[in-house]
């Protein structure tokens, strides 16, 4: 099921995120939601961002569109986007509500959200939302935009698109809604699609259909796909490359093969062991990670994962921040293990 991996090291990326840091200001002070997040996505590549809820995946997605909701604020880093014209812009240098930024959102970068019902206005038809999305970025007449909408809905495998286009979201099934949502996100043929847990709210069969659809779209359009999920089963199905996040930091990254066959970080290993059907889980029975993800207000000292890590070394992991280890190119992990002798 694992798709072929284009060699992302050699291609110049469409998106590269460097040293991204996001803070939330609350009464007590500042919570760091993201810290030193680095990754790239190339044309035709699917990058999966994996983590439990609260790991910062959603904030990462919103940072790329420069729309972190208050009280959050991007405090450091750069996000470089290569546009169709070949020029490269730093998204974080744009005004969040400025015209330039709006020209990128929905045009260069499309986004699909988790809850199709909540993310579509309940009182507007699918067609009117689609037409508006197209007209926001190009000068096309209403009739023409409508034709585009019908064609796009057909492409998404929605039956009777000419009728469905005048449906309200509540008149569509969950799967159809998400297909419509994807059609709207792709309305302007973006070069990068961000999908924030697009299949989480769907039942298993529908989930598989929507995933297949996304793989097909990517094959035909060669767009880059940033796929956010907590479900490693989904990752195995569609990812080329994987980034594992824990408490706002990337703890491990690599190709999907490397992550599944040779996970280095104890957190990744634990995640793999807790899903059925992987080599790690089969070796020692199904596994649950002890404890739960701590809130960002109480970040543990040293390695943030050490209280839940079964390989933690007292005196090291709970004291010192772990180093970033780069095996090659994008193959990295952040851990004290294996311990090296000092001196």
């Amino acid at each position: 099921m694992v798709a072929d991996s284009p060699d992302s090291d050699t291609q110049s990326p469409i998106l590269s995120v460097r040293g991204l840091q996001v803070e939330f200001s609350i009464f007590e002070g500042k919570l760091r939601a993201l810290e030193s997040v680095d990754f790239t996505v190339a044309e035709g590549e699917t990058l999966c961002v994996v983590g439990e809820s609260g790991s910062g995946k959603s904030v990462t997605a919103r940072s790329i569109l420069n729309m972190v909701p208050p009280p959050g604020k991007i405090t450091r880093g750069e996000i470089l986007l290569r546009r169709e014209t070949g020029e490269t812009v730093d998204i974080l240098a744009q005004k969040p509500r400025g015209k330039a930024m709006r020209g990128i959102r929905g045009n260069d970068i499309g986004m699909v959200f988790q809850e199709p019902m909540a993310s579509l206005s309940p009182v507007h038809t699918i067609g009117s939302i689609f037409i508006e999305a197209v007209q926001a970025h190009r000068k096309v007449g209403r009739a023409e935009a409508r034709e585009m909408a019908i064609a796009a809905m057909a492409d998404m495998g929605i039956p009777k698109p000419a009728q469905r286009i005048d449906y309200y979201p509540f008149q569509l099934s969950g799967g159809m809604r998400q297909r419509a949502m994807i059609a709207i996100a792709l309305a302007n043929r973006p070069r990068l699609l961000i999908a924030d847990e697009p299949t989480t709210a769907l039942d298993v069969t529908t989930q598989a259909n929507v995933l297949d659809l996304m793989i097909d779209i990517q094959d035909s359009t060669k767009m880059a796909l940033l796929f956010i999920t907590h479900d490693l089963g989904v990752v195995a199905e569609i990812a080329h490359n994987v980034v594992v996040m824990y408490l706002g930091r990337i703890v491990e990254s690599g190709t999907v093969h490397e992550i599944f066959e040779d996970a280095r970080h104890p957190y990744t290993q634990a995640l793999l062991r807790s899903i059925p059907g992987t080599p790690l889980s089969e070796s020692g029975g199904l596994y649950t990670i002890k404890g739960s993800i701590p809130s960002r207000g109480r970040r543990p000292q040293g390695c943030p994962f050490h209280p839940r890590c079964d390989q933690a070394v007292a005196g090291v992991c709970d004291v010192e921040a772990p180093p970033l280890r780069r095996l090659r190119g994008n193959r990295t992990y952040v851990c004290h293990l294996p311990l090296e002798l000092k001196g």
Binding site: A33, S58, Q114, E115
Partner: peptide, 8 residues
């Protein structure tokens, strides 16, 4: 999700 989750 985003906002609600962050607030939560």
């Amino acid at each position: 999700m985003g906002n609600a989750q962050n607030q939560a």
